[in-house]
Design a protein around this nucleic acid. Structure first.
Length: 988
RNA sequence: GCCCGGCUAGUCCAAUUGGAGAGACGCCGCACUUAGGAUGCGGAGGCUGUGGGUUCGAGUCCCUCGCCGGGUACCA
């Protein structure tokens, strides 16, 4: 070893080679050790986890039948840019945790996969003419190599990519299960569609129009069945994004109406698309959150996204003149998952949804969304007598006013609407509704503060108990009636709180809730509404069904064909996988991003020879047309955790017994699921909601035993980076910027130039990217791992600082030096006793490290190891006691596995330490022999006493009082507080 | 606007139920070196964002304000 220089790292760049002891732990040495152990682990299958059954079962494995632990990361999309140092933070965390648990006796399953379908590969393909599969596979290989270099203990047999045909075969299979299922609202679960058909055939379930099942034509029967499927085609308003050339799910559209990916404008268009009936699961998706060990903010975001509101539908009779009211038929209950926009279409009653039916007596006007279907039917020809000037918007008649307002509302972008500080706008439509409780006519307005997309698109306005309604009432000079008594001294406007109902009685209507609290008043009002056919209790949700089709090439094809009726038919499972056709022109048609009047066109539709197909689906060979949409990128990530369990299974997506072992419930009330799932919070509503939905369908159908996919979720923080820009706003290379502290303030210089620091993402354009490859070359993977884990708690975001990595490097060098003589390379571990004080520290460290590891507090765990190492360094000049070196190496192993394996071997062990028991503290050595108590007098420390650990409280008190006698100065202590093991406080 | 986090040394960050402020980077000094670096040893540096409250005692509990980050945005 004449040449020991690292690749320019670790501050050695100016050092003469001969000065460094030949056997020092350097980046070069790490670069030799690390690949060797990576090869060893791979060749020996060290991290293969045994299944209970199937090809991956192995009864001779040291952890066969042991208590399991399934740890997982959110798998990455393999982008062309490769990994930067921020990406592996969570992976190193789960790896360290998994290695620890494996040593602690658990059977640990940890695998990594790739979410490889998706837009970037396709966009790159369009630009370069490269097939997306080629780009994707190259990127996956690059990721695999980068991750392997970090020494992650994955079971490589279980790695999957969503683009593997063998994987998406099962994605398609699951789609077919969903397509062939319906939601039974009585049993509250998905059931096979065959059960529904049987029920129709037997007459046990009425058809929608009441005819006997046999009287329906085959096409009518199929249509009825299709309307119940959990995956269905619907013509409904969807998010059309011309810039991406595809439609998007609601979850993929930002609040200001743009695509989350690419930031293109999104337009509402009515199009025929595949939907997933996720709304059938609203209640379970909300209620089951309570069983999960997830960060509260994520649960909250899911609850908000699903948006369950409990209240009532109320029907208001309407008419265009006072006293002339059309009373229409009652509408039936809204089915769960009902798409809205389906408000009454004729001038029937005006149905509203409210969470406060108890305030109906305070409803002094009505508001519809400008787009509401009833507006055209109700708008009057002339302003009725008594119309206030403010109501007309200055227009000659209601029709003109409505047209003008609609134009005004439609012309505003979402951004403008929010920027306008919510000044209430709207216009009277010249018509009145009747308040069913008071019998009074109340005016109907249209206003954009009522959204077409929520509830029924219309509200009863109760200014007394609603801030928005109050504001509107003030602007338009409308009546305000309080129906809840605000508390004494209440000075606000609308009162939303608890209180007794007032002004809420009508002898003619037969309803009085006066004096009742809000909950009771609600219940009584709903009862009255139902008894008088004026409405009923109802629950609404903000969540809409999941738009599941995309007009892209690079996604899973739907295993669906259409026959001459245009109705979909599922391919039989024997025809799976349905592979993507290999076409030349896989580019989707994209459009001017701002052109709303365009329509999607699928790349697959151009593959005519694939689309037009002759198949025998049981009725003999017939011509069919294939579905040409593909599934969204989320499809593969909805179930990949299950495939890790049984990746080679050809007969099933996962064997039930394997699933039960790895993910099954651990107690009667347990949801089951992955034991620890680590990933970024950005998937709080998208991936995590979709994956829960699919999991529940599979659970309902009996394919799995867990009813939630991820029992415990942990959101890791992000590693961000500083970027520096000069006075022109140009970014300068971050690694060349120096920090200067002048008089308490810190400035940053690039050469002579002062530069401005900002904090944000790592990216090429900001000139602040640092890659794990750089760090491995400069310090080795172990140093990189230790640094990432010691920077701070896993859930906190922090800035990357290459400068500070050297601290972790020095720590590992000290550990190495404890075991290996730097001059000779010989072990310097000796079989002597540890001095008692160091031994106590060792056991305190063991106990502390275990507790920290269990709590995912890797940073403090490492701090304790550093303390122990520093202590050991200073007391082991003649050699390191084996009883100290071995536990230290074992405890370091989860973070610096290559170094630990190497040292373990050099200490004379033949086998990998991956399955060595993690050190256990001796409780006898955890208690100190003596305790130092600070003694406070009136809150200030005036002395210290050292007493035996088992000293009684009285002894401590006596010693303390003696110690501070001079400070007491003869005064009598009023009170003496002894906190055993902690301190003494004297009050005079 | 509303809802969550967070604020401890020049920097990143520790501190079980309230009970003498971990670790790392950087900085300074000493040893080893022709020197520098590396390594070893030692050291300095903090009225815990502001103002109040509860307590014998507050980084920790309560309230006010300020700053930073995230989510959400008229959801009836």
């Amino acid at each position: 070893m004449s040449e020991t220089r690292g690749a320019g790292g670790a501050g050695e760049r100016d050092t003469a080679a001969s000065d460094i002891p030949p056997y020092r732990y350097t980046a070069t040495l790490a670069g030799q050790i690390e690949p060797r152990w990576q090869d060893f682990w791979e060749e020996n299958g060290t991290f293969h986890a045994p299944n209970p059954t199937g090809p991956l079962a192995d009864a001779s494995h040291p952890r066969a039948g042991a208590q399991k632990f399934f740890v997982m990361d959110m798998f990455p999309y393999p982008s062309g840019a490769g990994l930067h140092v921020g990406h592996p933070l969570g992976y190193i965390g789960t790896d360290s945790y998994g290695r620890y648990l494996r040593m602690a006796g658990r059977n640990v399953l940890h695998a990594m996969g790739f979410d490889a379908f998706g837009l970037p590969a396709e966009q790159y393909a369009v630009q370069t003419g490269t097939h997306p599969r080629k780009t994707t596979e190259a990127n996956v290989e690059r990721y695999r190599a980068q991750l392997r270099r970090l020494g992650l203990a994955y079971d490589d047999r279980r790695s999957v990519a969503t683009t593997d045909v063998a994987f998406y075969r099962w994605t398609q299979w699951i789609f077919l299960r969903i397509f062939n299922s319906w939601y039974d609202t009585e049993q509250h679960r998905a059931r096979p569609i065959a059960d529904l058909i049987s029920a129709f055939e037997a007459g046990a379930r009425p058809t929608p129009d009441g005819r006997a099942w046999g009287e329906l034509s085959p096409v009518e029967q199929r249509t009825v069945v299709n309307d119940h499927r959990l995956a269905y085609i619907s013509e409904a308003p969807v998010n059309w994004c011309p810039g991406l050339g595809t439609v998007l799910a609601n979850e993929e559209v930002t609040a200001d109406g743009r695509s989350e990916r690419g930031n293109f404008p999104v337009f509402r268009r009515s199009l025929k698309q595949w939907m997933m009936r996720i709304t059938a699961y609203c209640d379970r998706l909300i209620d089951d959150l309570d069983t999960l060990d997830w960060p509260e903010p994520v649960k909250l975001m899911q609850r908000n996204w699903i948006g369950r509101s409990t209240g009532a539908h109320i029907d208001f009779a309407v008419g265009d003149q006072r006293g002339d009211f059309a009373v229409g038929d009652q509408r039936g209950d809204f089915a769960v998952g009902d798409q809205r926009g389906d408000s009454p279409t004729s001038a029937g009653p005006m149905r509203v949804f409210t969470t406060r039916p108890d305030t109906v007596f305070g409803a002094t006007y009505m508001v519809m969304a400008p787009e509401h279907d009833l507006v055209d039917a109700l708008v009057a020809d002339a302003w009725p007598e008594g119309t206030k000037p403010a109501w007309t918007g200055g227009h000659a008649n209601p029709r003109e006013a409505v047209d003008a307002y609609r134009k005004f509302a439609a012309g505003k972008t979402e951004v403008e609407r929010t920027a306008e500080t919510r000044d209430k706008t709207g216009v009277f439509i010249g018509a009145f509704a009747t308040n069913p409780a008071t019998g009074e006519p109340i005016p109907i307005f249209i206003a954009d503060y009522v959204l077409a997309g929520y509830g029924t698109g219309a509200i009863m306005a109760v200014p007394g108990q609603d801030e928005r309604d109050w504001e509107f009432a003030e602007v338009f000079d409308l009546a305000i009636i309080r129906t809840v008594q605000p508390p004494e001294g209440f000075e606000g406007k609308a009162y939303l709180g608890e209180g007794p109902a007032i002004n809420s009685a009508s002898p003619t209507a037969g309803l009085s809730v006066d004096g009742l609290g809000v909950a009771d008043a609600k219940a009584k009002t709903i009862e009255w509404l139902e008894a008088n056919s004026a409405g009923q209790g109802a629950v609404t949700y903000r969540l809409r069904d999941w738009l599941f089709s995309r007009q892209r090439y690079w996604g899973e094809p739907f295993p669906i064909v259409f026959d001459e009726t245009g109705l979909p038919i599922a391919l039989p499972e024997t025809m799976l996988p349905l592979e993507l056709p290999d076409i030349d022109d896989f580019s989707p048609k994209t459009f001017d991003p701002n052109d709303a009047d365009t329509s999607p066109e699928t790349p697959l539709s151009r593959a005519r020879e694939w689309v037009e197909v002759e198949l025998d689906l049981g009725d003999g060979p017939k011509r069919y047309t294939r579905e040409t949409n593909t599934m969204p990128q989320w499809a593969g990530s909805c179930w990949y955790e299950l495939r890790y369990l049984d990746p080679t299974n050809d007969a099933s997506f996962v064997d039930l017994e394997n699933e039960r072992y790895w993910m099954g419930p651990q107690s009667p009330s347990d949801s089951g699921g992955v034991d620890l799932y680590v990933g970024g919070v950005e998937h709080a509503v998208l991936h995590l909601l979709y994956a829960r939905f699919w999991h529940k369908v599979l659970y309902d159908l009996g394919h799995i035993t867990s009813f939630e996919p991820f029992r415990r979720l942990f959101n890791q923080g992000y590693i961000q980076a500083y970027a520096y820009s000069d006075e022109r706003g140009m970014y300068v290379p971050a690694e060349e910027v120096s920090e200067v502290v002048e008089g308490g303030t810190t400035s940053y210089y690039y050469g002579e130039k002062k530069v401005k620091r900002e904090y944000g993402k790592m990216g090429k354009s900001l000139k602040n990217v640092v890659t794990p490859d750089d760090m491995c070359a400069a310090y080795g993977a172990d140093t990189f791992r230790v640094y990432e884990m010691s920077m701070g708690p896993l859930d906190v975001s922090r800035p990357w600082e290459t400068r500070a990595v050297v601290g972790s490097y020095r720590f590992l060098q000290r550990v190495w030096r404890l075991v290996v003589d730097e001059a000779t390379g010989e072990p310097r571990v000796v079989d002597v006793e540890i001095d008692p004080e160091t031994e106590r520290l060792l056991h305190r460290t063991i106990a502390g490290v275990r507790a920290d590891m269990d709590g995912l507090r890797f940073n403090t765990s490492i701090a304790k190891l550093i303390e122990l190492t520093n202590r050991a360094t200073s007391v082991t000049a003649g050699g390191t006691p084996r009883a100290l070196a071995e536990p230290l190496v074992l405890m370091t192993a989860p973070f610096a596995p290559h170094l630990a394996e190497e040292l373990w071997q050099r200490m004379g062990h033949e086998h990998s330490l991956a399955y060595e028991p993690f050190p256990v503290a001796d409780p006898a050595l955890l208690v100190a022999e003596s305790v130092t108590y600070p003694v406070q007098v009136n809150g200030k420390v005036r002395g210290r006493i050292e007493v035996a650990a088992e000293a009684s409280e009285d002894e401590v008190r006596a010693a303390a009082l003696a110690e501070v006698a001079s400070a007491l100065d003869g005064r009598d202590p009023r009170k003496v507080i002894v906190v055993v093991g902690r301190m003494v406080s004297v009050v005079v």
